[in-house]
Simulated scan of single mutants.
Amino acid sequence: MTSGGNNLSSSYFILVGIPGMENIQLWFSLPAFCIYLITLLANISVLLTIKTEESLHQPMYLFLSMLLLTDLVQSNAILPKMLLLFLFNLQEITFEGCLLQMFFIHSFSVMCSSVLLAMAFDRYVAICQPLRYSTILTNPLIAKIGVAVAMRGTVLVLPHPFLVRRLPFCNSHMIEHTYCDHMTVAKLACADIGVNVVYGLVAVLLTAADFIGITVSYSMIVTAVFNLPSREARHKVGSTCVSHVCVILLAYIPALFSSVTQRFGGKIAPSTQIILSNLYLIIPPMLNPIIYGIKTKEIKRNVLKLYCAQRSRCQ
């Protein structure tokens, strides 16, 4: 590499893609393109709907906007390069480009987790403290939470590219992945990567702590729901959480499975591990706006209104 102590003659890496499937990767381009297209259309549609409809300028939908924005950035950090790799076999990525991609993918994953925690807090206040909802979740507080989400993702992940940049890469620069994952790149170095391993694990554990906060919030929510006097009231209140619970499960279960297989799945084929690590990054951003669009009547109604308005203008 061209920077500090790196001995590799070229200043780029080679993304192999899916090991063992290099000859059939072209066939992955169509589903990847469909996922990318749906992700863009669905997220942008819901974001425009929330922006244009004043009735949706509420804390729940503002947090949803944060989630969809993180999804969009994360998808754009991984899918365009993946499509170029699958379609045109464009495997090269510059050293700096690799570090930049690494930062955006990992930092926005952390931000997504933070937003899910904020959304769980929103549901807790709405159900357990309904009379104080508007006084607790004010616009200034929501803005502060948004800043905290961005700062947490940035500060927690910023060391990753610097920890990789200090490493010497003497031999291989072939990344057996479709994107620049922190540990996958670090393992190519011809030096001790103990610091990378420890800090990567710390970052994972700190992010996983969000799930504990979400679990505590929903434990209180479930208790409050069961204490409601009528079955109809329990159903009505519980239904407001269904979308968020689906998104949480979609975010954490594949991520947990992928993390476990990467660290302990010695008998699992590398191609399977890489496919799983890709799916947990690209599937939730596609499905999150669809889940909210289907389960939330206000969003569904206003998205349809937006499309009908656009269609009438075209005619």
Rank of each mutant, 00 (worst) to 15 (best):
I253V: 15
A126Y: 10
F33E: 07
S107T: 00
S3V: 11
I38M: 12
R234I: 01
G293A: 10
I24M: 12
T2Q: 13
F211N: 02
T215Q: 04
N23L: 10
N89P: 05
M21Q: 11
Y199K: 10
V225T: 13
H177A: 03
Y292T: 09
A203S: 14
C241D: 02
F121H: 08
M220N: 10
L69V: 15
L15G: 00
A120C: 09
K305E: 08
Y307N: 10
T52R: 09
R231S: 11
T39R: 02
L8P: 04
M102W: 00
F33L: 14
G4Y: 13
T52Q: 08
T52V: 03
M66P: 04
A143N: 14
I44K: 03
L206N: 07
K187S: 10
V247S: 12
Y252F: 15
A209W: 03
Q310Y: 10
I274H: 06
A251W: 05
N139S: 15
P229C: 06
I136E: 06
I35D: 00
G266F: 13
M66A: 12
R231G: 11
V225G: 05
V303G: 00
I283G: 01
R313P: 00
I14D: 04
L64C: 12
F86L: 13
G213Q: 01
V73C: 12
V164E: 00
N7Y: 12
L30I: 14
F104D: 00
I50E: 07
M102T: 05
N76T: 14
L40K: 01
R132K: 13
F226Y: 12
T52H: 08
C34H: 06
R231C: 08
E22A: 03
A209K: 03
S230R: 08
G20C: 06
